[in-house]
Simulated assay, not measured.
Amino acid sequence: MYGSVTAVRGLSLTVGRGEFLTILGPSGSGKTTVLMLLAGFVSPNQGEILIAGNSVAAVPSYRRDQGIVFQSYALFPHLTVCQNLEFPLEMRGMKAAERSTRVNRMLDRVHLNDLGGRMPSQLSGGQQQRVALARALIADPPFLLLDEPLGALDRNLREQMQIEMKNLHREFGITSICVTHDQEEALTLSDRIIVMRAGQIEQTDTPEALYDRPATSFVAKFLGEANILETPGFRVESIDKLRPGTVPMIRPERISLSGHTARKRADAAHRQYVAGTVVDMIYAGPLRKYHVRVGSSLLVVRENVTAEQTIFQPGVNVNLDWLRSDVRVVKI
């Protein structure tokens, strides 16, 4: 608790050895507090934190054998790259010769062989991130905590580092817990994702299952875009009767768009067709996104851009269709 505010409540989770677990949620959901509890920067008001069966709830952070990577990198500005990497080894009493060997090996692994003598201020953002990761991994901690690790990088560099982090995790096999609000980052890196809301776990599952089978409308809308078909002006044909407190949902990329006079598809018996009017068309490089008015709802349709693709401008009447099996029922 922070004063009278309960940041996290009723939280129970288990992280498997070698697993990459991501805690995902909007600001104020409690995800950072969970990381601070695991790191030892915040003490729980009640409950236990167990690592390999041992309680660490009362153990201060500096006595926990863990690696931590912060969004700000937190590199020592007065030390070179090599000295930054040596620091955790020196704190563990490792001899100089062994420290040097391990530092050189780690620099090679993160592709920074020629930069060991540089100061952090002489490195790019991506290079600083690699040093931070290397420093966290070099002492072979049993688990790694990542606090918005790629948040300070631009989009292209962030995507490159996602691949690098995934490769490092595969190579080292270290149990990793990452906190982020970036959905793409979570989907790319994780073996399993926890979605948090208002201090509680909303849903836990694999990236594929969370995206394809969200349990609630909150998860559906937070993890990607979602069309909630509450008042669409038509009956969702794949659903006979909705349970109270639930709504049908379909992802934008599951909807196909065609001219209003186009012939139906070969598998039309398995599809639902509705008519609509294009309200807006947004070109976003590899994707083209449409907002289409259907009855009283505005549906989002997302298509991959191709050379021979028909482009529908605002005001054009169109048909939308989707496989009935692609509709999901989620709790409100």
Rank of each mutant, 00 (worst) to 15 (best):
M1P: 12
Y2H: 07
L13A: 12
G16T: 04
G18D: 12
I23W: 02
G28V: 00
K31H: 11
L38K: 07
A39Q: 11
E48R: 15
I49Q: 04
L50I: 03
S55N: 15
S55Y: 02
S61F: 02
F70Q: 04
S72R: 12
F76N: 11
F87R: 05
F87I: 03
K95Y: 00
A96H: 14
R99V: 14
T101M: 13
T101P: 00
R102Y: 01
N104C: 01
R109M: 15
H111P: 01
R118S: 11
R118M: 09
Q122L: 01
S124I: 02
A132I: 07
L133Q: 03
F143E: 06
E148S: 03
P149G: 10
A152S: 15
N156D: 11
M161H: 07
H169I: 11
V179K: 06
V179F: 06
T180Y: 05
H181M: 04
E184V: 12
R192K: 09
A198S: 13
Q203F: 03
T206N: 06
D212W: 01
A215Q: 14
V219D: 05
A220V: 08
F222T: 12
E237R: 12
S238Q: 02
I239Q: 10
K241S: 11
R243N: 01
G245H: 12
P252L: 06
L257S: 14
T261K: 12
D267T: 14
A268W: 03
V274Y: 04
V274L: 07
T277G: 00
V279L: 14
I282V: 12
G295M: 06
S296C: 03
L299D: 08
N304F: 05
A307N: 13
Q309W: 01
V316W: 01
L323R: 14
V329G: 09
V329D: 11
K331V: 07
